[in-house]
């Protein structure tokens, strides 16, 4: 019985109360398994994610290191890199996204079939990072919805793996009855933006040290 090895804590609710998610009947024999469909589907999904690596810059090198021999992403069910968005589950945006690339990442996201998730790897993809200038999008969440942000410049492979595990946890909490999470977000036809322009301006505001570093001399 392969399924008995699933850690029960994978689902957040069963820790507190409620009936067992997996029960095997008759006890100790090769009988049948009863479980919740949600749980089974999510378990399957979260452990066979097909990533679509959208690697642009330095973070992509760390992504490659994560996939290579030492860190071996395959241990998490992700060895099947899907370079075609139509066969992918999770978009991993590794690297900075300049404005010129914005329509492309949007296009790739739209080409991915549901269910789909996005991981934003690195400071640049998440916030624009150290590139607070005319060319770089200040966070890909202004273009596509993001599930997990992995901080770091670049994040270490361990960090990315942790982010992926967090995504797996998130997937385990999804409910089929909640139809809205699978809805495609449609951009506003006039402005082509998902989120209001004022909100984009607000989250793209410079912060911290970079506010003071706009003087070019002395």
């Amino acid at each position: 019985m392969g399924l008995t090895s699933i850690p029960h804590s994978a689902s957040p609710e069963n820790a507190s109360s409620g009936p067992e998610i997996i029960s095997i009947e008759p006890k100790g024999g090769d009988g049948w398994v009863t479980t919740r469909l949600d749980f089974l589907v999510n378990w399957g999904r979260s452990n066979s994610l097909w990533p679509m690596p959208f690697g642009t810059a330095c973070c992509a090198i760390e992504f490659m290191a994560t996939a290579a021999s030492k860190f071996d992403l395959a241990r998490f069910g992700m060895e099947r890199m899907s370079f075609s968005p139509r066969q992918a589950d999770v978009l991993i945006c590794a690297g900075r996204v300049p404005f010129k690339l914005a329509p492309i990442i949007r296009r790739i996201w739209q080409q991915m079939p549901q269910p789909k998730w996005a991981i934003s790897m690195g400071a640049c993809a998440s916030t624009g990072g150290m590139f607070d200038n005319y060319a770089v999008v200040q966070g890909i969440d202004t273009i596509i919805p993001v599930d997990v942000y992995v901080p770091g410049c670049p994040p270490r492979p361990e960090g990315l793996i942790y982010g992926i595990m967090m995504l797996q946890k998130k997937i385990m909490t999804e409910r089929m009855s909640n139809k809205s999470i699978r809805d495609e977000m449609e951009p506003d036809p006039s402005s082509k933006l998902y989120i209001p322009a004022s909100r984009i301006d607000e989250i793209s505001e410079p912060f911290g040290n970079s506010v003071h570093q706009t003087r070019s001399a002395p």
Partner: peptide, 30 residues
């Protein structure tokens, strides 16, 4: 549309607001 970025009269963060920059970029048909 914003001009020539390395000219000194070009501001570091570009001439337009971020949302406008994004809108124009998304408008550019790849």
């Amino acid at each position: 549309k914003e001009g020539f970025p390395l000219r000194k009269d070009f501001p570091l963060r570009g001439r337009f607001s971020r949302s406008e920059q994004l809108r124009q970029a998304l408008d550019a048909n790849p």
